[in-house]
């Protein structure tokens, strides 16, 4: 049986791919460092990072075995504040989906805090680290310009029908489809503040590619109930959790 995530479907394989740190994520687009900073809206491009403590090597910290064992991430070394990026993933075949994000983030990266809801998924880290991770999350197969939203607040949309251009609903209309270029542009930052100039995110992935890359089971894609191995493992988990404190031979 496959490790990391069970199942014989393509969805299961995609879940394994994202979650396996050895798997190299496919890069689908180029977003400049400056554009990432604009999208995040935490600082102006070129502005210094704000710090919440002096650089670690200037701090006279007491000896501690944990400090020796754990190498600080760059932002922690520098004393950066904690910042975030939050995504909304459409149930209509967006590539990444909330729990997949959490599981994959935690197996790929250190120094992060992540939170998972049905309609949004946040990752927090020191500012320069969140910028580095955001670039990966925006440029690779984690992201589709039409079905993945970058939204700090005002997040509804993951379960709503799509608009006439195939874009997910966003009450603040941060990502808009440019009919002339066929590309999606970000006209507001993730919290909804107008950008001076749009950031071009690129063309939406076509439906076939989305279905090939998605990590959501759906009956109009791959049905979870048809992935017998995945369901069998889930049943085992339910039975184990239910009887874990009891004598499995005697039953309950």
């Amino acid at each position: 049986m496959a490790q990391i995530y069970p199942g014989t479907s393509q969805v299961a394989q995609n879940r394994r791919n994202f979650t396996n740190p050895e798997y190299e994520l496919e890069k689908l687009r180029e977003i400049s460092d400056e554009d990432v900073v604009k999208i995040l809206g935490h600082r102006a491009p070129g502005e210094d990072y704000k710090s919440v403590h002096p650089p670690l090597d200037e701090m006279d910290e007491p000896d501690d075995i944990v400090r020796e064992l754990v190498t600080p991430i760059d932002g922690a070394k520098a004393g950066d504040r904690i910042r975030y990026i939050q995504f909304v993933d459409s149930m209509y075949f967006a590539p990444a989906q909330p729990y997949l994000r959490a599981r994959s983030y935690l197996s790929r990266w250190r120094g992060i805090d992540t939170g998972t809801l049905s309609g949004r998924q946040v990752i927090e880290a020191r500012e320069r680290d969140i910028e580095r991770l955001s670039k990966i999350l925006l440029e690779t197969e984690y992201f589709d310009t039409a079905r993945t939203g970058i939204r700090g607040a005002g997040v509804h949309g993951h379960s709503l029908r799509l608009d006439e251009n195939g874009l997910m609903f966003d009450m603040l209309r941060r990502q808009v489809f440019n009919k002339e270029t066929g590309k999606v542009e970000m006209v507001r930052d993730q919290i909804g503040v107008d950008l001076d100039e749009p950031v071009v995110l690129g063309e939406p992935l076509d439906e076939e590619t989305l279905k090939a890359k998605t990590t959501i089971y759906r009956i109009d894609g791959e049905a979870y109930k048809d992935d017998k191995e995945a369901v069998e493992v889930l049943h085992n988990i339910h039975v184990s959790r239910s009887f874990g404190a009891f004598d499995p031979n005697a039953g309950w």
């Binding site: 879940r15 149930m91 989906q97 909330p98 729990y99 997949l100 939170g115 998972t116 809801l117 049905s118 309609g119 993951h158 990590t215 959501i216 089971y217 979870y224 995945a230 369901v231 889930l234 988990i237 339910h238």
Partner: peptide, 14 residues
């Protein structure tokens, strides 16, 4: 709950 969570890779809020 488990079936829902795995099928849609999401459940409720925190």
């Amino acid at each position: 709950m488990y079936l829902h969570k795995e099928q849609h890779s999401r459940l409720g809020f925190y």
